[in-house]
């Protein structure tokens, strides 16, 4: 009998070792363990702290379970058999209070980190240059990124300067989606008729994987985009190239054509965007009139605040 259990335990340890090796091997490609942004770095560290804290309870549980089960196995006549042992108040107090203490510690960490990493809060970084704003609109099934300060827009491609805060406003003109660039930080949902906010900073230039993480229908798998962090001079020249190109102007008619369901759209750019398009996209769900309202088309729509 004994040999069998030893084999079982050994093979289990072997499995754990394999899992550990795999984790080690994949840690370079696991984007989240390899953060490139201010937010994702903090989120990664938070993960490590939480796991370490929890292992204070989990490891003893793990070891105790198997050691005690083995020690008090039926065949082991040397072990004490004491069927009357059904209460040990001190011990019970211990295992109510010990996990509670850990959860209390985690709770404090949670309270502080949740406020620090609140995606709505602009990031405070010493090296941070002025921020840029990107209005992200999830469509069936593509991402439209409007740069209101630059007056341009891009489809399924996001470029922004490194070490600069990117302040996202996110909505959807389709089912719910969630904007996620794992290597830079957490995600936030885009929902029709609502505008949410997310602040990210890339600390190193590079091409980062971006996507929608919330299933939104048939073309969902194609809602991936590249988020490219570049130097600010490169960013300026990218903006200028698009502005000076003869690419399409994004007005309401063009937008409504774009918003129709389509899959795996190639990257494209808009050299100019009518003002307040984003607000119009959010607000059109607020009125009983259907989407044929033309106020935004003329660019005269008052900028109703929807960004609370």
């Amino acid at each position: 009998m004994g040999v069998k259990y030893k084999i079982a335990i050994l093979s289990f340890l072997f499995l754990l070792a394999v899992a550990g090796l795999v984790l080690f091997f994949y840690s370079h490609s696991a984007v989240m363990l390899n953060p490139q942004g201010f937010v994702s770095l903090h989120e990664r560290n938070l993960m490590i702290i939480a796991v370490l804290l929890m292992s204070l309870v989990v490891l003893p549980v793990f070891i105790l379970t198997f050691v005690i089960a083995w020690k008090y196995r039926e065949g082991n006549s040397k072990a004490k058999y004491n069927p009357g042992l059904v209460r040990l108040p001190i011990y019970e107090v211990l295992w109510w209070s010990f996990p509670f203490a850990i959860v209390a510690a985690l709770g404090v960490i949670t309270w502080i980190s949740t406020h620090a990493l609140n995606p709505y809060k602009p990031l405070q970084m010493q090296s941070a240059a002025p921020s840029i704003t990107v209005q992200a609109v999830a469509l069936d099934w593509k991402w439209l990124f409007i740069y209101p300060q630059q007056g341009i827009a891009s489809l399924n491609f996001l470029e922004f300067p490194v070490n600069t805060q990117v302040a996202f406003k996110i909505t959807s003109d389709a089912p719910m989606n969630s904007l996620w660039i794992p290597q830079l930080g957490g995600q936030l949902y885009g929902m029709p008729g609502m505008s949410t906010q997310l602040h990210l900073i890339a600390q190193r230039p590079g091409n980062y994987m971006g996507m929608s993480s919330n299933f939104s229908g048939e073309g969902f798998a194609g809602m991936q985009f590249t988020a490219k962090a570049v130097s600010s001079s490169e960013f300026t020249s990218w903006v200028n190239t698009i502005k000076n190109s003869s690419s399409t102007v994004l007005n309401v008619a063009e937008y409504e054509a774009l918003a129709k369901p389509s899959q795996n759209n190639p990257i494209s750019y808009y050299s100019s965007v009518v003002p307040n398009l984003y607000n119009w996209i959010v607000m059109k769900y607020m009125t009983p009139v259907s989407s044929s309202s033309t106020s935004a088309g003329t660019g005269t729509a008052t900028s109703t605040s929807t960004s609370t």
Partner: peptide, 22 residues
């Protein structure tokens, strides 16, 4: 117990932003 650790991780909003829907 492993699943519980993963669960408590995701109970921390700062971590959940990264792991939600993954």
């Amino acid at each position: 117990t492993l699943g519980g650790v993963a669960g408590v991780m995701m109970a921390i909003p700062g971590i959940d932003y990264e792991l939600h829907n993954s």
